[in-house]
Write a protein that binds this DNA or RNA. Structure first.
Lengths: 223, 223
DNA sequence: GAATCAAAAATTATCTATAATTTTAGAAGG
DNA sequence: CCTTCTAAAATTATAGATAATTTTTGATTC
């Protein structure tokens, strides 16, 4: 039978908690109490504490000595910061990945784009979006870089899910398609340029169709 | 009396171990045994394990379930990866920091450069070098970005210390000075460009004065 | 002498217990 | 009704104990 990628209780707990935080099930500022979580997972608090250290490093939780751990809060300023870091690092990754991209990979990325366009809800869209980015960046073969991008992507997704209140409307991702066209034609620098702007857009453009004050503000969903 | 920045045993252990790994006192591949470290610090292994999670996240150690934790190994490929990530992120930080730089900060950075040039050994040089970079980047006021840069800087320093075998010779850091000149004259983009090349140099230029095979290879010391 | 195997020792991952600290709740006083 | 204080409850951080796994050691065989 297939073995799990990580088989310690601590890593499983950290993965589940990270997912909950990203999806917004655990809201910003929410207190993560080690005994409660331990009980939920049928474990002691020792692996829970180890999971906390991981979440802390990912920027999903903050820990104050003796005062416990809470879900990290984030404001629009931090969303922009994450977007700019992602833009810088994804461009770097794409420049290295470009020469290793095969037609098969680009086809898969196009399929991911189509699935994103057809997505019925924000979670499905985000899953497809993440897949697109992973597909075109993974061939850079730089594990540390990819790990950083993954963490930043999680932070972006968290913002996306939290900002999304109303219904989901389908749309066409022109940026993704333009990136693929450029890559297919071997114009890596152009693709990198589009990718940079594409990612930086996150948290930049207030959605003018929303009434101010309705629920704070809404922003363009991209990424 | 002044309080320590972090007062848990786990954070202290992780800081000390990180320092030892960076300085090369703990060599790549070295096994970190939780009970031994616990004993050394007069603690139990619980905080040691938490420290391990932090080192893992920083890329300084790798952990295999049930098989323990070892000091991360690194090759020239990873050194380049770290250098490119640093270049990308430091450029981003400098672009944001530029508008907040004051003459006082630039003076302090110049002083750090002088101290680096006068450094008697590689550790003193690295300390001054790090200070220079921190001084000009911190005003970007982007904590997540700065934390990432710090981790990458540690990885660079680790390489620097490991590659350095022979004696230390003083030299003048022209890049740092050129960056300061550009910043003083308000040419932030030019400064960012120099910084980018400066950081990317790490792990790039084989030092031609060393005989091949003497101790693997030596590389230009920059950063 | 090298390879193989089994028992012993060491080590990890986890649980349970405990001291110290923080938070909560409620009483007393303004 | 709002502070302020205090005692109780909850929570964190760490220690000590234990089962499971891995590593080491050393004998045995080819």
């Amino acid at each position: 039978m297939a073995k799990e990628p990580e088989d310690t209780i601590a890593s499983r707990i950290s993965r589940v908690l990270a997912d909950r935080i990203v999806r917004g099930e655990l809201p910003a500022g929410f207190r993560l109490r080690q005994d409660h979580i331990a009980e939920e997972f049928g474990a002691s608090h020792v692996p829970v504490r180890e999971a906390f250290r991981r979440l802390e490093a990912q920027g999903l939780a903050i820990s104050e000595p003796r005062r416990g751990v809470r879900v990290a809060s984030f404001d629009i300023k931090e969303v922009r910061e994450v977007a700019e870091m992602r833009a810088a690092l994804e461009v770097l990754a794409l420049r290295h990945a470009a020469k290793h991209l095969t037609p098969a990979i680009l086809d898969a990325a196009e399929e991911a784009t189509r699935e994103g366009d057809a997505a019925a809800d924000v979670h499905a869209w985000e899953e497809a979006n993440r897949r697109f980015h992973r597909l075109i960046l993974t061939p850079c073969n730089m594990s540390r870089l990819l790990a950083s991008i993954d963490d930043l992507h999680a932070a972006s997704a968290r913002f996306l899910f939290s900002a999304w209140r109303s219904g989901w409307e389908k749309r066409t991702d022109h940026d993704h398609r333009a990136i693929l066209v450029a890559l297919r034609q071997g114009r890596a620098e152009e693709a990198a340029g589009i990718l940079e702007r594409h990612v930086q857009w996150i948290g930049r453009a207030p959605k003018s169709t929303n009434k101010a004050g309705e629920n704070g503000e809404a922003f363009a969903i991209v990424g």
